[in-house]
Design a protein around this nucleic acid. Structure first.
Lengths: 207, 207
DNA sequence: ACCAGAGAGTGACACGGCGTCATGTTCCTC
DNA sequence: GAGGAACATGACGCCGTGTCACTCTCTGGT
C-alpha cells in the first residue's frame, strides 16, 4: 500500500468537492428552468438527490448559491480581461479588445446555458455585485487610471468613467443578444466608438 | 340633502383607494427597512392592519406591489421627461435637460425615502422593467429617432444609443448618490459630454 | 324607508418551503 | 483496529403562502 497522498485527494475532500459542484450544477439548471425568483432551495436539493441538511453545509441560502454562480462567471472573465490588458500597448487598443472579449464571452455563455429569462429576470451574468465582479470593476478603473497617468487619456473622473463603460457594455450587450443574428463585432464597434469619441469631451479634473 | 355626487366618491370606492394606497405605503416602508429580498407579504399586511386576504384583493404577490411602486416612480418621471422635450429646440439641449432632470429626480427620491439599500439590493427606482419604464425607454428612443430625422444627430443605431444612455444615467446616477456632497450638476455634465462627444464618432447606419 | 344582493373584508386553514439538530455513517489518524 | 472528527441525513417546528367560506357594509332599485 502506497503512502503517496496527492494533496486534497482524500475521499472526504473529493465528495466535498463533488457535492458542492453538484449543487451548483443543479442550481444552474433550476434557475434556468424556473427562473431565479420562483426557484426554491428545495428544488435544487431535489435535483441533487442530497438531503436538505447537506445543502446548508455548503451554502447558507439560495441567494448564496446564486452569488457563487455569478462570481464564477466574473472569475472566468477576469483572466480574459487581464490578457487584453497585457496584449495591448495603447488605451484604445485595450478598450477595444476588452469590449470585444466581453461580448464574445457573453454570447458564448448565453448559448452554452440557453438561459430562458422570464422578462427582466435576474440571471447570474455579471449583473449582480459579487467580490469577483467588484474586482473586475477595480481592474477596469485601474486600467483607466493608468492610461490617464501615462497620458494615453485625458485627466477625467476614472470612477464615473469605469461605471459608465461597464454600464454601456452590460446594457448594449443584453440588447445584442436579443437581435438575430447576434453580431458581437457591430455591438463592440458601437460601444468602443461611443466611449472613445466621448472621452476627449469629458470634463477634466484639476491636476 | 344634496344629490350632488362627486365622481367615484362612493364610500366603497374610497376605501378601495385608501386600502390600495395603505398597502403601497406600507410596502414602501417595509422594502426600505428590511430590503426587498427579505420582506414578506405578511410584513406588509401586518403594517397595514388589514387581513391577509385583503392584500390579495389588490395585488397578486409581493412582486406585483414592487412593480407598482417602480411603475409609480417611472410614471412620475415621465411628464418631467416630456417637459424637457417640449422645452428644448435642439437635441443637445434636450439631452442635457433630460439628464439633469433625471439626476435631480433621483437625488430627490433618494432623500425623500431614505432608502437603505443592503449592498446591491433591488430598489424600485427606475431599475426594474415595468410598462411605465418601457414607455420611458420608448420616449427616449423616439427623441433620438426624431433628432436623427431632422438632422440634429447623425444616422446611428437609436436602439443601442437609447439603451446606452439610460444605462450610463442609471449607473453614474447611483454612484453620484454615494458621493458627498451629492453633485447632480457635475454628474450630469459628465454624462452629457460623454454622450454628445461620442455621438459623432458612432458608426452610421445605411440610409 | 326598506330590502336584496353585490362587492369587499376577514381570518382560519391546508400546504409547502425553511433552517436546525440529534443521530447515523464514513473516512482519517494514531 | 479503535477512537474521533467530519459530514450526510431527514424528521421536525416554525412561518409565510394563497384560498375560501363566511360576514358585513354599502348601494341601487322599489
Amino acid at each position: 500500500m502506497s503512502h503517496v497522498t496527492v494533496l486534497t485527494s482524500g475521499k472526504r475532500e473529493q465528495t466535498k468537492i463533488a457535492n458542492r459542484q453538484a449543487i451548483l450544477v443543479a442550481a444552474r439548471e433550476v434557475f434556468a428552468e424556473l427562473g431565479y425568483e420562483v426557484a426554491t432551495v428545495r428544488d435544487i436539493i431535489r435535483r441533487t438527490g442530497l438531503a436538505s441538511g447537506t445543502f446548508y453545509n455548503y451554502f447558507r441560502s439560495r441567494e448564496e448559491v446564486f452569488e457563487a454562480l455569478a462570481d464564477d462567471g466574473a472569475a472566468r472573465f477576469r483572466p480574459i480581461l487581464r490578457a487584453c490588458w497585457e496584449a495591448s500597448d495603447t488605451f484604445d487598443g485595450y478598450l477595444r479588445a476588452a469590449i470585444q472579449a466581453y461580448f464574445d464571452f457573453l454570447a458564448d455563455e448565453h448559448e452554452t446555458w440557453q438561459v430562458r429569462r422570464p422578462a427582466g429576470e435576474k440571471h447570474p451574468h455579471m449583473r449582480i455585485q459579487t467580490p469577483e465582479m467588484e474586482r473586475v470593476f477595480e481592474e477596469v478603473r485601474e486600467a483607466f487610471s493608468k492610461a490617464i497617468e501615462h497620458g494615453g487619456a485625458p485627466r477625467v473622473d476614472a470612477d464615473y468613467l469605469a461605471a459608465a463603460c461597464i454600464a454601456i457594455a452590460r446594457e448594449v450587450g443584453d440588447r445584442m443578444l436579443e437581435r438575430r443574428p447576434v453580431n458581437t463585432a457591430a455591438a463592440a464597434d458601437f460601444v468602443v466608438k461611443l466611449i472613445l469619441g466621448g472621452l476627449p469631451a469629458l470634463p477634466r479634473l484639476a491636476p
